[in-house]
Simulated assay, not measured.
Amino acid sequence: MNEELYEGSKYSKLSFCIRLFHLKCLGGWTGNSFTMLLEFLREMFPFAKIPQSCQDMKRLIKDLGLSSNTEDVNTDEGGAQLRKKPVKVLRYFPLIPRLQRLFMSSKTAESMTWHNDQRTDDGLLRHPADSLAWKSFDSKFPSFASDPRNVRLGLAADGFNPFKIMSTSYSTWPVVLVPYNLPPWICMKQSSFILSMIIPGEKGPGNDIDIYLQPLIEELKQLWSGVETYDVLRKENFNLRVALLWTINDFPAYANLSGWSTKGRYACPCCAAQTCSKWLYNGKKFSYMGHRRWLDENHKFRFQKTLFDGTEEYRGAPEQIVGSEILFMLKDINFSYGKMNQPPIT
């Protein structure tokens, strides 16, 4: 790590390779073009310790944990080949080494405890740590909250067309994690996002996203118990734990990630069975009414029939269902993942 690029250089061999490989990724250079650049640099600076090829550079920086895993949908549970071409190839980037790497640098290790050490706690909402959800989680799991280095994550997922052509039927789904321990001016920067996986098209995963999320769920379960991690700032090993607090998505993706359909008679995940919906026979779709239920009891809109649906509104806002009630409703339901006659992911 400390080997100089050449005598008197301010760059080490490793830092030079990382910087150059970063430019390769940002510029979209091919492996062959990158090898040609390295050959040219070695001719120009024969005294520098420059790798001979792109593969040599990859071998040099592989221990940084920047690799990915690929999983094919083309084998059965016993490993037998079902088809030559996989249905999809999931690219998954392991989470544990990337979180551990945040504590290998004194700068990022200090930022990971900013919410506890440097945040102004005056009752104003400036950071997710000021939110009721964060505080409620801490009160429910005091052992987790006792170490400020434990990580709170948000998960964001949505589909997009990588080819920028709206008529092309293709939907790639990235799944991104956001470490909320960081200061607010850092945690929402692109450089702080953790790309967890890429689910390729041509069609979006739909409800089958549960299948693709399996490797991430397994790591999150392991991280809830904790993994041994070295803190370079305190010069000690500690048990790093992680909790997923939030998901970020639009309404259609909300249905896939939460398991609650955002279509049909009970489309509102908050109102659930109390959703006020009406079937439009001519339009052949549901219309969602009852918005006046959230107004003050004496609000004039509640009593104006002609401006709305011809009725007066006397009901109060529906009570929001809590997680324990949802689990009780789902306890006897058997879930079948994937489509019929589709081989499982291995």
Score class of each variant (00 low, 15 high):
Ser258Ile: 13
Tyr230Asn: 01
Gly290Asp: 10
Ala272Gln: 12
Leu280Met: 13
Cys270Tyr: 15
Asn282Ser: 11
Ile199Pro: 04
Gly206Gln: 07
Asp250Met: 11
Ser277Leu: 07
Gly264Asp: 04
Trp279Tyr: 14
Thr262Arg: 09
Leu233Asn: 07
Asp231Leu: 05
Ile209Asp: 01
Ala255Arg: 02
Trp246Met: 09
Tyr288Cys: 13
Cys271Phe: 08
Ser277Asn: 13
Tyr254Arg: 07
Val242Ala: 05
Leu280Gly: 11
Phe238Cys: 02
Lys285Phe: 12
Phe286Asp: 09
Glu236Leu: 02
Ala255Ser: 15
Gly264Thr: 03
Gly226Lys: 00
Ile199Glu: 02
Pro215Gln: 07
Asp231Pro: 04
Glu219Met: 01
Thr229Glu: 03
Glu202Trp: 11
Pro205Val: 08
Gly290Trp: 05
Asn207Glu: 08
Cys276Pro: 03
Trp246Asp: 08
Lys263Thr: 14
Cys268Leu: 09
Ala272Val: 06
Tyr288Thr: 10
Glu236Asp: 06
Trp279Arg: 00
Ser261Trp: 00
Trp279Ser: 04
Cys270Gly: 07
Ala272Cys: 11
Glu219Tyr: 06
Glu236Lys: 14
Gly204Ile: 03
Asp250Leu: 14
Thr247Val: 15
Leu257Ser: 05
Trp246Glu: 08
Asn239Arg: 14
Glu218Trp: 00
Ile211Glu: 08
Asn237Cys: 04
Ser225Gly: 06
Thr247Leu: 09
Ile199Ser: 04
Arg234Glu: 15
Cys271Tyr: 10
Tyr254Ile: 11
Val232Cys: 10
Asn249Gln: 15
Leu257Asp: 02
Arg234Ala: 10
Ile199Met: 15
Trp260Phe: 13
Arg292Leu: 15
Asp250His: 12
Thr247Gly: 11
Gly206Ile: 07
Trp224Cys: 02
Gly290Val: 09
Arg265Asp: 02
Thr262Asn: 09
Gln274Pro: 00
Met289Trp: 01
Ile209His: 07
Pro205Ser: 09
Gln214Glu: 15
Cys271His: 15
Pro200Phe: 10
His291Val: 03
Met289Asn: 10
Ala253His: 13
His291Lys: 12
Lys263Met: 05
Phe286Tyr: 15
Pro269Ser: 12
Lys278Tyr: 09
Ala255Val: 06
Phe238Leu: 04
Trp246Tyr: 15
Trp224His: 04
Cys271Gly: 08
Glu218Gln: 14
Asn249Arg: 10
Trp260Ser: 03
Glu236Thr: 10
Lys235Asp: 13
His291Ile: 08
Gly290Gln: 05
Gly201Leu: 10
Pro200Tyr: 07
Lys285Thr: 12
Gly290Phe: 04
Tyr288Trp: 14
Lys221Met: 06
Asn237Leu: 11
Arg265Glu: 12
Ser277Lys: 08
Ile209Phe: 08
Met289Glu: 05
Leu240Ser: 01
Asn239Gly: 00
Ile248Asn: 07
Ile248Trp: 11
Ser258Pro: 09
Met289Gly: 02
Gly206Glu: 08
Arg265Leu: 02
Leu223Val: 12
Glu219Thr: 00
Lys278Asp: 04
Thr262Pro: 01
Thr229Phe: 02
Asn207Met: 06
Glu202Asp: 14
Gly283Trp: 02
Leu213Cys: 01
Ala255Met: 11
Leu244Gly: 08
Asn237Gln: 04
Ser258Lys: 11
Gln222Lys: 14
Thr275Asp: 11
Ala272Gly: 01
